[in-house]
Structure formats: C-alpha cells, structure tokens
C-alpha cells in the first residue's frame, strides 16, 4: 500500500524537470519514514500508475520529502499535471544507499550530469550537514544548456560556502550571454581540473554516455574502480525484487542497487 502525500510546493527546475516537495498525510508515516542517501521510492499518480525516482532530499532534512522528475512517459506526464495541494502515493524507501559512514575522513568528488544531480544532491546535502566528517568536497555538474541545469538555488548555496568547491559546466553551444561557468563536456572539465585521486571517493551520476567517457578520465587520474560509486537506473515496477524487469544477471537493481561501485558494475553482464 502506498503512503499518501500532499504536494506542498512545486519547483520548475528546467523546462522539462520538476521538483515536488511532499508531506505525508499521515503524521505517523512522516515520523517513521526513514531513508538513507541514494534510496529510491515508487511515486503514484493514481489512474496512470507508478514511476521510480530517487529521493532527492537529504535524510538529514526530514521535514519535506523531495523528488525530481523529467517529463518523459505516461506517469511523469500525469504527475506534471498535478498542482499544489494534490495527492500522490509514495512507496518506499527501497534499495541500497551510498555508504557515507565508510566514506568518513575521505575527500569526496561529486560528478553529475543533467537530472543525475538529483540522487547526488541528496548525498551532497547529507554530507554538508555533517561537513566535519569529511575532508575536501568538490562538485562538478554539467547539463546540456544553462536552462537544463537543475537545482539552481541549491547550487548557489553550495557556491556561497567556502568549504565546497563547485564547478558548473554546460555543453558547448548551451551557454547564454553572461554565463560565468565552464563551457565543455563533463569528462573534459574533469580532465582539466585534475582532482586528486588520493583518499578520494567519487559519486558519479548522469546519462550513460557521460559515464562512459568520464570513467577513462578518472582511471587516468588514478581513481580506482571500487572508489567510484554510481547508480543504475532500470525500468522497475514493483521495487520489491519480484516483477523481474530490473534484473541484470542475478542482481535486482531495486534490491541490490541502485548504488553500485564501478568495480561491481564491471562484473555484471553488460546489459543495462
């Protein structure tokens, strides 16, 4: 049974991406709904079905649950038509999470592309709320164009902090007059900024093509596959390890994932 939640606020992140700030209708659920950074949920638009997104807000900020989605299919179109005050369903949290406890005392490099910033943002905020546990924190975020950048408000906040280094880039041609960030594809920007791989863990989320070209760059910079964490997104229905569509080999992405190290991904059948 999904929990019911009310849409408290809608933020238009980019022309095709929206964020909902959600409040559980049942006070008990709001209290007991506990999740970790990286986990996902199934969101229902009743009448059109369920869709899978990560929980974009940080578990350290539990007042409102947030999710961001790009309008692509039936359910996301239906969600897009909803207004503040409307009700949606939430099942979850499901899946595994980023091992933030194990990463304590390390430098963290966040790399995200497009809507891939949603799962990463959850981790970033979680880390920033416990800033003293981690060493250097750097963020590299890229999108196709300036208007495609999501979480502009959050990025501004991160930039205003002195203990975080932020690089924002847009693909060549995506810049607008007055754009003061980088212009270039994410892998190239990382190559240029050459972050240290020593005692550093990478959290990498984005479109498959970005991951494909970023990995060799990271390897050249000395990052080990087991220090690179990413998420796999497969089509899901149940989120409970039953319906059979998200599995890659004997791994159910909804149970054993969505967070994997690059070393783990390399061992899977290459079918995702």
């Amino acid at each position: 049974m999904p929990h019911l939640a009310e849409i408290r606020e809608i933020i238009d992140e980019s022309p095709d991406t929206r964020t909902f700030r959600l409040m559980f209708k049942d006070a008990g659920t709001a209290e007991s709904f506990d999740f970790k950074a990286g986990q996902f949920a199934e969101y229902s638009a009743f009448g059109d079905g369920e869709s899978t997104f990560c929980i974009a807000s940080s578990p350290t900020r539990k007042d409102l649950i947030e999710c961001s989605f790009k309008v692509y299919g039936k359910v996301t179109q239906s969600l897009q038509r909803l207004n503040v005050g409307d009700t949606i369903g939430i099942r979850g949290p499901y899946g595994n999470w980023f091992p933030l406890d194990e990463l304590k005392g390390k430098n963290l490099l966040f790399i995200a592309g497009g809507i891939g910033l949603a799962p990463v943002r959850c981790v970033i905020e979680n880390v920033l709320d416990k800033r003293e546990d981690y060493k250097n924190v750097s963020i590299v975020y890229g999108a196709r164009s300036v208007s495609d950048l999501i979480y502009k408000q959050e990025i501004r906040e991160w930039k205003s902090r002195t203990d975080v280094s932020v690089i924002v880039t847009v693909d060549p041609g995506g810049e607008t007059p007055g754009w003061d960030g980088e212009v270039g594809f994410v892998p190239a920007v990382i190559e240029k900024s050459a972050p240290t791989s020593e005692n550093t863990a990478v959290i990498l989320c984005g479109p498959p093509v970005m991951i494909k070209f970023t990995m060799p760059v990271l390897t050249n910079l000395g990052f080990k596959d087991e220090d690179v964490y990413t998420t796999l997104e497969n089509r899901m229905k149940c989120g409970l390890g039953k319906c059979g569509r998200c599995n890659i080999g004997n791994v159910y992405v909804c149970k054993d994932g969505p967070v994997f190290t690059y070393a783990q991904i390399k061992k899977l059948p290459q079918e995702f």
Partner: peptide, 25 residues
C-alpha cells in the same frame, strides 16, 4: 514464470484500481 506488470485502470472518472498482470520478458 512469474514476471508481472503493475498498471492503474480507471473505471470511472474518480475511481479505479491498480492491477497486477502477467508480463513476459
């Protein structure tokens, strides 16, 4: 074989149900 699909089906403007249907890989 046990794979299934989950779909919502409205049967009036305001009412509907969520179905668990056989699906095939």
């Amino acid at each position: 074989c046990h794979c299934f699909d989950l779909v919502d089906e409205d049967y009036s403007y305001s009412e509907g149900r969520r179905m668990k249907n056989w699906d095939g890989c």
